[in-house]
């Protein structure tokens, strides 16, 4: 097909969709629609992971991000009853300045990559390191200690979220 392989077509389509949905996240007024577009962006990124043969991360990404974190966002937004009418908007000058700054930042990054080596290739499907077996071996041998620390971090976050979110904040220390 026009000299491109299936992998390259999929990369192009997924990249286009991811960028479009990411733009919609920023430019939609209704916060609920924003969350849904962000979920679609995350599905596109999970597709990229599959294209890179990082199957474990693709599944974890969908389960953790699209499944857990985004549901949390949606829950909080619906709890606060936010919609397009209550959405505060920045002044038009601020938004134009934000766009200009973003454009300049993109220009700098693209300019910095101008002289970079062009020949390096990511081989789609050739790499085996993203499979659960290989990643598990690395995670539970080389990165065992950080893994345990991460569990303590999650426990601390759990306790902290409950403490902060409690309705009665007048804790008697005596």
């Amino acid at each position: 097909m026009l000299g491109y392989t299936i992998t390259q077509w999929l990369f192009g389509i997924l990249s286009f969709l991811a960028i479009m949905f990411a733009l919609m996240v920023v430019f939609t007024r209704n916060p609920v629609n924003s969350v849904l577009y962000l979920v679609l962006t995350f599905f596109c990124i999970a597709g990229h992971y599959l294209l890179l043969n990082a199957q474990f991360l693709a599944v974890v990404h969908i389960v953790v991000y699209a499944g857990a974190i985004m549901v949390l966002f949606l829950f909080i937004i619906m709890l606060m009853n936010l919609n397009a009418d209550t959405e505060p908007r920045k002044h038009i000058v601020t938004r134009v300045i934000a766009g200009v700054v973003g454009g300049v930042l993109l220009f700098v990054v693209v300019g910095a990559l101008k002289g970079a080596e062009q020949l390096q290739i990511v081989q789609g499907g050739a790499s085996q390191i993203g499979l659960v077996k290989n990643l598990g071996k690395v995670l539970f041998s080389e990165f065992l200690f950080p893994f345990e620390i991460a569990s303590i971090l999650l426990l601390a976050a759990l306790v902290g979220a409950i403490m902060i979110g409690k309705r009665d904040t007048n804790i008697n220390l005596k």
């Binding site: 992998t7 990369f11 960028i19 920045k90 766009g99 973003g102």
Partner: peptide, 28 residues
């Protein structure tokens, strides 16, 4: 068969900058 790493750098840069613009342009 492959995709140049530069394309991934570009895609990540674009997504990152969309996030930066979002942080600067929204109030919610």
């Amino acid at each position: 068969n492959g995709i140049p790493i530069n394309f991934y750098i570009m895609l990540s840069a674009v997504l990152f900058i969309i996030g930066v613009v979002g942080v600067m342009a929204r109030r919610n």
